[in-house]
Write a protein that binds this DNA or RNA. Structure first.
Lengths: 159, 159
DNA sequence: TATTGTTATACTCTATAACTATA
DNA sequence: TATAGTTATAGAGTATAACAATA
């Protein structure tokens, strides 16, 4: 096995006969487990294991906002700029992202997907759509809008 | 600032005028952001910053299942046994957890909360209840049961 | 003075593999 | 042979602080 290999991540769910106590009824706790389950299944089934969900989101955001700066990407994914440097370097080393100096602000770099980056995004998007179709099926068409609205409310309004 | 300090974690939400594309409608993506928001707010407001949500869950599970083994805890929190060793050592060093050799299987250790561990759990639980009350308010009483059921369905049935 | 991005550094969390003791 | 737990080690992800270049 290659040294850089990552575990495909085992299924995460509370085990066996173990009692969870009040945790079982906490939204926060269940949100965590559901997110881990979703994350793990996405990562486990992807054909490009080095393109984790975080990188996928970055590719998508660069695709949707071509020419954005690293600072703008950092804000979009809620990470420090010093975390974006190695993230972008990784994507750049894989030939997925191109960096060009901004013409209007010579401190900043503009980000663009290369053709390979667009292709990788297409493939990941297809994977993500398959993945999310499973989630849609579990949640049910009649519940999806409400479920998404609640998630967005949590991320937008929780203080 | 102490060397072991951790950032209280800034608010995580997609930034500014950046377009998210199809991500915006993916359950998986929104699940991630909502979970991060919840996690960050919990961690930011806790009075015991070294008792992260993961440790809190372990304390709770030990409280609810006194005398369980490290392997049982590992299964309950869906982590490898080698990840449980440093987790338990940390709690033990803080005087929150006691380890006693099992009398029926001399390879295994039984886990118990110390009085300080019970006290820490009480305090964390109070914090978690306050936190979850905010989540309850955001989700709404009329939606909570359905929302929790969907989260549990995702963690239980997603393949 | 403030901001963009890089570098150096460090910490958290987690895993695999090899190992010991025990089953 | 298989399992419980430890250790050594490694990798991903992220942050703070100091810095150079530019605004």
């Amino acid at each position: 096995m290659s040294p850089a290999s990552r575990k495909p991540a085992a299924r995460r769910e509370p085990g066996g006969d173990i009692r969870l106590g009040p945790l079982d009824n906490f939204i926060g706790f269940n949100l965590r487990l559901a997110q881990e389950a979703s994350f793990d299944v996405f990562a486990r089934h992807t054909a490009a294991p080095h393109l984790r969900p975080g990188r996928f989101a970055s590719l998508m955001i660069i695709h949707e906002n071509p020419g954005l700066s690293q600072m703008e990407l950092a804000r979009a994914i809620a990470r420090d700029k010093s975390s974006v440097t190695p993230l972008i370097r990784g994507l750049w080393e894989d030939g997925l992202v191109e960096r060009r100096p901004s013409e209007i602000d010579r401190r900043s770099m503009t980000l663009w997907l290369t053709p390979a980056g667009e292709e990788a995004l297409r493939s990941l998007l297809a994977h993500a759509r398959r993945h999310d179709r499973k989630l849609d099926a579990l949640v049910g068409a009649e519940n999806k809008a409400n479920f998404l609205a609640l998630l967005k409310k949590i991320m937008g309004e929780l203080r």
